[in-house]
Design a protein around this nucleic acid. Sequence first.
RNA 1: GGGCGCAUAGCUCAGUUGGUUAGAGCACUGCUCUUACAAAGCAGGGGUCGACAGUUCGAGUCUGUCUGUGCCCA
Length: 877
Amino acid sequence: MTENTTPAAAAAEQPQALPSQYTPAEVEGKLYERWVAAGWFEADAKSDKPPYTIVIPPPNVTGQLHLGHAFQHTLMDALTRRKRMQGFEALWLPGMDHAGIATQNVVERELAKEGKSRHDLGREAFVDRVWQWKEEYGGRILGQMRRLGDGVDWSRERFTMDEGLSRAVQTIFKRLYDDELIYRAERIINWCPRCLTAISDIEVEHQDDEGELVSIRYGEGDASIVVATTRAETMLGDTAVAVHPSDERYAHLVGTEIELPLTGRRIPIVADEHVDPEFGTGAVKVTPAHDPNDFEIGRRHDLPMPTIMNERAIVTAHGPFEGLDRYEARFAIVAALREQGRIVAEKRPYTHAVGHCSRCKTTVEPRLSMQWWVRVEPLAKAAGDAVRDGRVAIHPQELAGRYFAWVDNMHDWCISRQLWWGHRIPVWYGPNGETVCVGPNDEAPTGEGWTQDTDVLDTWFSSGLWPFSTLGWPEQTADLAKFYPTDVLLTGHDIIFFWVARMMMFGLYAMDGRAPFHTITLTGLVRDQFGKKMSKSFGNVVDPIDWMDAYGTDALRFTLARGANPGTDVPIGEDWVQGSRNFCNKIWNATRFALMNGATVEGPMPAAEHLSATDRWILSRLDAVVAEVDAYYEDYQFAKLSDTLFHFAWDEVFDWYVELAKLPLNGDDEAAAQATRRVLGHVLDVTLRLLHPIVPFVTEELWTTLTGGESLVVAAWPAPSGFADPAAEAEITTLRQVITEVRRFRSDQGLKPGQRVPANISLAGTAIAAHEAALRQLARCTPAGEGFSATTSFPVAGALIELDLSGAIDFAAERKRLSKDLAEAEKVRDVNTRKLGNAGFLAKAAPDVVEKVREKLAGAEADIARIRGQLDRLPSA
RNA sequence: GGGCGCAUAGCUCAGUUGGUUAGAGCACUGCUCUUACAAAGCAGGGGUCGACAGUUCGAGUCUGUCUGUGCCCA
């Protein structure tokens, strides 16, 4: 600690030098480096302490820190920092995922600037190039996490493409393949014609687009039938028209063939249960290779399934339309049909839901293709059951319904991607049609004609293994034994399906039915100060670094934590961050005051009988706050615990305890001063500990100076001491009421805040008899001297306060104030009188409720009498 | 189209099993640089809790309908 030359430390030796404002930039970087260098964030697998583990939701290697990360990281950091202080072997494990499509896109864009494509380089060189990019530019977010103060174990940082994690991917692929939970099949998949790969169902975003609904007459005369479509261009791939079996309008046509316009091909009319007779004409065109529903109809009726577009959604057949993209083809085909008089109706615009690639927003093209799939049914059932039977809890509970809706109705998961960046599918094909899945310890087949599958796996496939692949699985490592299962998974509710459900499936499958975590805490999304979603197009995106620069990291963290009501979105505005900065500065100044006045944590706390009521009050409150904060942490109520600490620190400790402490600190009674210094030191010590997980920097800077302790990172979390003094709490509450009442009178009378007023104060026999000096100090009352003449007097809480305003009293203001009080008291009286006059209430309400109402009525009546007395004594205007 | 949620002060949000005069932050008004802090202090104003009906001795809280709004799924 001797080399510690922080501003606060220097100031402790020379209190005058202490800056009156907290400057985050001067302490944050230095403190973080110190924490990391000391190794306090590194977990020890050999430790005897109970483990507490959180794995970070791996950010994208191409990504940068946004407010959503800042938000979730603040909460995860708070959880792990507290557990570390509580004596757990706390591990918060960091890392990134390789983001197959996004990363490949980034590098391809780079290549495009050089006029090259990945095909010019070839697969191996391209992948090398991606690695090179990753080393140079990837992972900017890791530096930003340091800035945020994330107490992660950097020695355990992982990346989904690392050798160990890749081995985990291959291991589980092989295992699932052998268990027949992975298979290869030709199906309709969601194809992105821009990314040139398949994507899974949940990577498709549906949104309403304005399109057109065109009704086309197929066939001629009696044998004609009208179909409606939003995708006229796909007619080139039609191989049937389908109607409902019970639809009498078309019964005579079923089994016949009609000519498909423009092509000269003849296609059958089939009857299929899945056709909705109510929609349009009740007849639908069937394009099995370009629509999932049509594919199913095609399978049932054994129809041909011609693909009519290439991977870029350009038409590949049929003479005049060949080479047109899907939209050009649509226009050309409708024109050609119109010329033939086959368009019987057109509706424009026709709004309907269209699928878009979640990565690039391109309209998805359903496409028949050979892909790899996970048969999810048994995995999903296990994932659902683990939550259903209580082994895994979801916070907030309301979101469990969405989880069940997904896992209980999950479609098979398309896991192959036509990319080069990712985990290549470990399957080899032989010259004679052999298929071999190669495990991590197997030799890949070599020799003439053997080739490996060219596809890679969905990034989420490897992310799904994250809670155990990062701990060394499939090896039976010490880390895995110590830290799996992890404790809490904290992430946004928007990736329940992408990630949470898949970790559950893989964890239960690979780890002998042991779920990857016991608690899932789902957060909302960060929004702007008006509750609007942050989006680039709307221009309301905020870079968290900017706010950290302007107001300090702690201010940003506190604002985010304070907004974290369970399951709800978190609005955040610059004004609020500024408010949090003000709070940090307030903590700074309160501690500065304490240091200047010799607050200490040395020596035992004085026994209760040697403490003032003020001391006993704040210690009693402190104990209650420790318990409250603990309860909120256990329930993941970050907003509540932050708010509790905010109000305790500011409204009670800083505004009242510190002010009341000034009397003994500046008084002649050295024993009383010393006791106060000790209590003040203790209260700040504990308060800083409680605040540290949320605002680690300012608390660390102040606490090390105040206590001389090594670091809050490894300091003990406060435990309730069992101290409670309800009498002292009541006493100080009354004192505060009386002081506030006098101040209110002063304010209404237009007195200057600093102006001293002679007062005669009679406290004998009241609960606050011992606090006259405090009352005089905080209400700025001087003793009644020679010639004291009370211009006004008022009773409050049994005390009588007489003030000499030298005749300057504003009777109108006083009448207004008293009238307002009277009206309020009368309202209370009336409400409660009505209740007590209600026979039903007396008969049915709980006795304690009735008793409370009686007390309230009595209190109101006493107030009314008192206020009326005061009003009566005022001279009439 | 199906499901879920929300509607409380100017703004953003808390309000536990129905029972104090409905709270907070920010914003607002007045007075103050009172020797920790003007990034502050002290005092204050502001809401018929979306609408209508119902249950109840009693409804911001429970039920139904309506209106508005958001999200998820298709």
